[in-house]
Design a protein around this nucleic acid. Structure first.
Length: 368
DNA sequence: AACACGGGGCG
DNA sequence: CGCCCAGTGTT
């Protein structure tokens, strides 16, 4: 066996056998996913961006709805950003939606509405990094471009029995090189998707189905019985607990909302007045609510009942969110704040917590 | 190299 | 409740 190979499967004969086994397996087990109906680069692009850090089952309904609203890159480029965000609502990582919209405009303006075909040019578009560029180039254009993402990191790490954290830069360098080494000359679109499919369906994070794996004989981890230890877990980020409050300030049936700025959480989405809570005890909390509502909105309001408490996580924060009502007393709205009617709430793009709250307001305004 | 960025699914 | 997910961009 050649000693300059990254792994046994990179020996050229083994490599060919590996590809053949993988493709044969994929021919049998390929899932029928909505974005596999065609190789239209627009559809591939939308799906790949939606799939960033988001599971296949979650993406399906969003993809179908999005494609119905914006069937082509021109439709997307011509859309209102708020409409794009509205269709993204609930999917998370909203910068992806803004990037998609900006990239669509750029493709129309600078590329005549035609998708770039090469990895380097694809990577100049917002929201398209090394993985997504490789995915579009290979899947839509069958270019010989490697990909590396959650499924294939795990798969390749096991094939190599790579003992360290494969998400660190050393491991990434190695695995990107391997992802390129194993690429076939043709059929790259199917090959790359087959790698991900195998990682997703067989080479799973826990309880990998090695007995059903077409390339178990190429897998160093399996040969050494290490499939449950590899890949080594990455250092986990620890959560910080924080308390936050949102306040539904009401006046003549309207509520105060604002659009989040470009450099903050939920950029482009609308939100209720929201802030951290430091004090303990209902009296001190009420005092803090009044002060922070006034500071943020310019309005003096009297806090009412605690509507609900929602727990959710954002990055490293574990947030306990208390939702209050409050009644307008005095003052004028400042900055980006707006009075919004309940009916308008339905049209604005909101975060998931914002939507939960908004639904209650819409309900109580229309129903009883 | 470390963080920020969401939210849901699953054991 | 902790881990994981078809990553990207900024610092």
């Amino acid at each position: 066996m050649a000693t300059d190979c990254i792994s046994p499967i990179l020996d050229s004969k083994c490599k060919q056998a590996f590809r053949r086994r993988l493709l044969a397996w994929y021919a049998k087990h390929e899932r029928d996913l909505p974005w596999r109906k065609s190789q239209d680069p627009y559809r591939v692009w939308i799906s790949e961006v939606m799939l960033q850090q988001t599971q296949v089952e979650t993406v399906k309904p969003y993809f179908l709805r999005f494609l119905k609203a914006f069937p082509t890159v021109k439709n997307l480029a011509a859309a209102e950003e708020s409409q794009v965000l509205r269709l993204w609502e609930g999917l998370g990582y909203y910068r992806r939606a803004r990037g998609l919209h900006a990239a669509a405009k750029k493709i129309v303006a600078e590329h005549g509405g035609q998708f770039p075909r090469d990895v380097a040019t694809l990577q100049t578009l917002p929201g398209i990094g090394r993985y997504t560029a490789g995915a579009i180039a290979s899947i839509a254009f069958n270019q010989r471009a490697p990909i590396l993402e959650a499924n294939t990191i795990r798969l390749l790490a096991r094939l190599l029995a790579y003992p360290d954290d494969p998400t660190k830069s050393v491991g990434q360098r190695l695995l990107w090189a391997m992802a390129e080494e194993i690429l076939p000359r043709r059929d790259v679109a199917r090959f790359n998707q087959a790698l991900m499919e195998l990682g997703s369906l067989v080479c799973t994070p826990t309880q990998p189905k090695c007995d059903a794996c077409p390339v178990a004989r190429n897998c160093a981890a399996f040969q050494e019985g290490l499939q449950n230890e590899i890949p080594r877990a990455s250092v986990k980020m620890k959560f910080t607990d924080v308390r936050e409050a949102v306040v539904v300030v009401r006046k003549n049936g309207k509520v105060i909302m604002r659009q989040c700025g470009p450099d903050e959480r939920w950029a482009g989405l609308w939100d209720f007045p929201r802030f951290g809570i430091e004090s303990e005890g209902p009296l001190f909390v009420e005092e803090e609510l009044v002060a922070k509502v006034r500071d943020q909105t310019g309005i003096t309001a009297k806090p009412g009942s605690l509507l609900t408490t929602i727990k959710h996580g954002v990055t490293r924060y574990r947030i306990t969110l208390d939702c209050y009502t409050a009644q307008y007393k005095s003052g004028r709205l400042k900055g980006a704040m707006r009075w919004i009617r309940p009916a308008e709430l339905a049209e604005l793009p909101l975060s998931t917590t914002g939507r939960k709250l908004a639904n209650r307001i819409i309900q109580s305004a229309s129903g009883n």
